[in-house]
Design a protein around this nucleic acid. Structure first.
Length: 578
RNA sequence: CGGGGCGUGGCGCAGUUUGGUAGCGCACAUGGUUUGGGACCAUGGGGUCGUAGGUUCAAAUCCUAUCGCCCCGACCA
């Protein structure tokens, strides 16, 4: 491809709309343009990168026995009503109506459609397992589209759905996808971690997320370097602390005056104690549509509530901290003085760590007073106990006791064991050897393609631009003749360009009549892995320069050997990933 | 939806406080000089100041409404 013909409108300045690196560089390198919030046009360079990622995905899916198909984007409402997700999916679902007033939605995911297909066409255990996938545009009316391609409302996703006869079969399919995903992200040269994850709205039992490590990521992951434990913070568990304190004798419950001390910090400094002695007491509202119920939650003063865990436990659709008025109704005291001692007629859930607190402190449900020497078993009834806390770096690993670490990252892939949720709801069954009718056991496995591209940029860039890993670079090489007015140099460049094309190297010839600086800067911004420079300096000696974008290393080679050297370099760079 | 910010040539911004008839840099076009890390000179084209209504002799500027975009929180690949 000739740079003079390539449609890459690069930008010198950073567009005001972009905050994150990937967003800025995608815009500046002329790869994407926004048409509305979370909706983008992919220009030729981006299209090439996406195709490369898709091809890697396709190869790995096929290798595991996946078969590609294509499904409709427009889904009839009935299908979604059948799985009861027409209501459950909420406002994220793009809904529309046809001229006959029939309801449809734009598919945000395709469990319903694929399950409908498979239930019609598959009847026997002999036809299982079945692994079907699609690489298609999906639509989600995100609450807040963000960070360019990271969270769009229209985006390409690879989704594979597995159908098995039983749980063991599902385990096999799941492992295949786990392996395939690891291979895919390795081939894309991304640094990633696989973590246990919450299943969210999709439902199901086990699930793992593939997280590309990046400071700008929306997800926080917790992991242990001593053992293999790794989980999204939404789900992460840690060992209980506080057991070493238990030697202390129980003291008598006492009321203490704490005027105006409404926060943990206030109480800690006022009473000269430590936050882990406090019993933080919060009132939540479990919301289901119009209905809502208050729930009191207790945990140690130095801990935070993991609302996802709480919500999963309660089984409600939404969760919110109660307003001041509700808090007063329940505790008979202003906000800041709540405690579990003496609370009645309300559901109380305590974190698993709370029972380890000895002679603790909590609000007295009375303005300006706290209880001291509170002992959970003695002073308030044994409520529901569950793991409620949000794990943080430094907490001890539940499995091996080592301190946990945390990282931020971007969720590029997510695999789920769905079980029979959809097959039961939609009656997708088969007959086993004994002629018994059974629901299929399903799994689903997604990869966000544009997000993977964006994540690759977050992880591979410098102050000059993108540094594409070879495997997903839009082109492998750019040839830059320093002086486009020099006919001899241009001829040489043309010759190298032709020969590279002939041996299958993906190459761009920067034949524009621009100054060298402009070409170099565009080359760095776009991020071609290799740059071949033709200029008087080296040509005097019959040589050309080959510069590696990632390392900045420059090597001089004889003109006649340039193509062979580039070819070798590409092969070398490709090794280790394939 | 709650909180914060922003809409002025293609891009980045100034002008808004204190109304007076739109400006700078980059980009673009033409000519010339340049040519190894975003050149220089000259000339030129391009803006209903997000939209609608109002106040006023006069509105980018003041008032009202509305739309869009970005950032922080609840959702997810």
């Amino acid at each position: 491809m000739r740079m003079s013909q390539l449609f890459v409108p690069t930008l010198r300045e950073v567009p005001a709309e972009a905050e994150t690196i990937s967003h800025q560089y995608l815009l500046r390198a002329g790869m994407i343009r926004r048409i509305a919030a979370g909706i983008y046009t992919y220009l030729p360079l981006a299209q090439r990168v996406l195709e490369k990622i898709e091809e890697i995905v396709r190869e790995e899916m096929n290798k595991q026995g996946g078969q590609e198909l294509k499904m409709p984007t427009l889904h009839p409402a009935e299908l979604w009503q059948e799985s009861s997700r027409w209501d459950a999916y909420g406002r994220e679902l793009f809904r529309l109506r046809d001229r006959h007033e029939r309801d449809y939605c734009l598919g945000p995911t395709h469990e319903e459609v694929i399950t409908d297909l498979v239930r019609r066409e598959v009847n026997s255990y002999r036809q299982l397992p079945l692994l079907l996938y699609q690489i298609q545009t999906k639509f989600r009316d995100e609450i807040r589209p963000r960070f360019g391609l990271m969270r769009g409302r229209e985006f390409t996703m690879k989704d594979l759905y597995s159908f098995d006869r039983d749980q063991d079969g599902l385990d096999v399919s799941y492992q295949k996808m786990y392996d395939a995903y690891s291979a895919i992200f390795r081939r894309c040269a991304l640094k990633f971690r696989v973590v246990e994850a919450d299943t969210g709205a999709i439902g199901g039992t086990d699930s793992h997320e593939f997280i590309v490590v990046a400071d700008t990521g929306e997800d926080e992951i917790i992991y242990c370097e001593a053992c293999d434990y790794a989980a999204n913070v939404e789900r992460a568990v840690a060992a209980l602390a506080g057991e070493e304190d238990t030697a202390e004798p129980l003291k008598d419950l006492k009321l203490a005056s704490t005027p105006g001390m409404t926060s943990i910090d206030d109480v800690v400094s006022f009473l000269g104690t430590e936050p882990q002695r406090l019993l933080k007491t919060l009132v939540y509202l479990a919301i289901d549509g119009e209905a809502y119920k208050p729930v009191v939650v207790v945990l140690r003063g130095d801990r935070e509530v993991n609302e996802i865990k709480l919500q999963n436990h309660l089984g409600c659709m939404h969760l919110a901290l109660a307003d001041a008025q509700t808090v007063e109704e329940i505790t008979q005291a202003p906000v800041g003085f709540a405690g579990p001692v003496g609370l009645k007629d309300v559901r109380i859930i305590i974190d698993a760590e709370v029972p380890t607190v000895v002679n603790g402190i909590c609000g007295a449900n009375r303005a300006d007073y706290h209880w001291i020497n509170v002992n959970p078993q003695r002073d308030f009834p044994p409520a529901e106990i569950m793991d409620l806390r949000r794990v943080a770096a430094g907490d001890k690993c539940h499995f091996c006791g080592n301190p946990l670490k945390s990282d931020r990252g971007i969720e590029v892939g997510h695999i789920f064991k769905l079980g029979t949720k959809y097959s039961v709801a939609m009656d997708a069954t088969f007959l086993d050897e004994a002629g018994r009718k059974k629901p299929m056991v399903m799994g689903c496995y997604g990869i966000g393609i544009p997000r993977t591209m964006a994540a690759a940029i977050e992880q591979n860039h410098d102050e000059n631009g993108i540094i594409w890993p070879l495997s997903i670079a839009p082109y492998q090489v750019v040839i830059i003749p320093v002086n486009s007015k020099n006919a001899e140099h241009m001829e040489l460049a043309e010759d190298l360009y032709t020969r590279m094309n002939r041996v299958g190297i993906e190459v761009v010839l920067d034949d524009r009549d621009e100054r060298a600086g402009v070409k170099f800067n565009d080359a760095d911004l776009i991020g071609f892995p290799l740059r071949l420079t033709l200029g008087p300096r080296s040509l005097k000696e019959g040589k050309v320069e080959i510069k590696d974008r990632a390392t900045g290393k420059v090597t001089l080679v004889e003109i006649g050997e340039a193509v062979a050297v580039i070819k070798d370099r590409i092969e070398e760079m490709g090794k280790g990933w394939a």
